[in-house]
């Protein structure tokens, strides 16, 4: 099968105006992923499904990922004067990266027996601009999985036929799989050697007495 770089080039050649970003995966390079803007996601997905050399007709897995606001350290090479002469110096700069939600699709081809190709969509932030395009019209298997991502992460899938909560109850108002989710405080003391659980119990009983 083509490498992710080749697939990126094919998609960009076939669909003018579409830009994909390659997100490298150092652990498993063959599973580097293609980041697509939500506006083009359906067209790209359709191309990946119908292209005769790819035929990614099987969307195996849909995942939400929550990325919090973070400071990213990057190593940049700059030229500057050191001890009178200009040298190339590597320096680390810190950059604030706003948080976002991400939806990851793992695509396989049943017809050609290859895969996976990893496709990603990102929201603009984690609060109000959380829309991405639903790929349920392209792969039916996204139907329940996108509902699950909506339920647990709060990503809104534009164009989903039946976007409701799926695992939590309908009245529930939070997104429990987000990294900053705060659980309801119903801890109780239990004899356990795990420090973090004892800490939670102490926070729950601040006076140290009975509840």
């Amino acid at each position: 099968m083509d490498s992710p770089e080749q697939i990126k080039a094919r998609v960009e050649a076939a669909l003018p105006g579409v830009q994909l970003e390659l997100r490298l995966n150092p652990a498993v390079p063959a599973e580097s992923s293609l980041v697509v803007a939500p506006a083009h996601a359906v067209a790209v997905a359709r191309f990946l499904r119908d292209d005769p050399a790819l035929r990614l007709d099987y969307c195996s897995n849909v995942t939400g990922v929550d990325w919090l606001d973070a400071t990213v350290k990057e190593k940049v090479k700059t030229r500057r004067l050191v001890a009178g002469e200009e040298q190339e110096v590597e320096e680390t700069i810190e950059r604030k990266r706003p948080g976002y939600l991400e939806v990851v699709y793992h695509l396989y081809s049943v017809a050609l027996r290859h895969g996976p190709v990893v496709l990603r969509q990102r929201t603009r932030n984690r609060f109000e601009a959380v829309q991405v395009a639903s790929l349920t019209p392209v792969w039916r298997s996204c139907e329940f999985q996108e509902r699950e991502v909506f339920d647990l992460f709060g990503v809104v899938f534009h164009g989903h036929p039946d976007l409701r909560r799926i695992l939590m109850w309908d009245q529930f108002q939070d997104f429990p799989m987000r990294k900053d989710y705060v659980e309801p405080d119903d801890y109780e003391y239990e004899p356990t050697p795990h420090d973090e659980i004892l800490d939670k119990a102490r926070r729950h009983y601040p006076t140290g007495g009975t509840a």
Binding site: Q131, A133, P137, V156
Partner: peptide, 30 residues
Amino acid sequence: READEQGLIGALSTGDISPDQPAWHIASPQ
């Protein structure tokens, strides 16, 4: 499903996702 699919594609392929979509959007039952 096919009818659904065509309806959705028609709606989606017209352009960008508008940012003023409500963040909390629950579809009515089919």
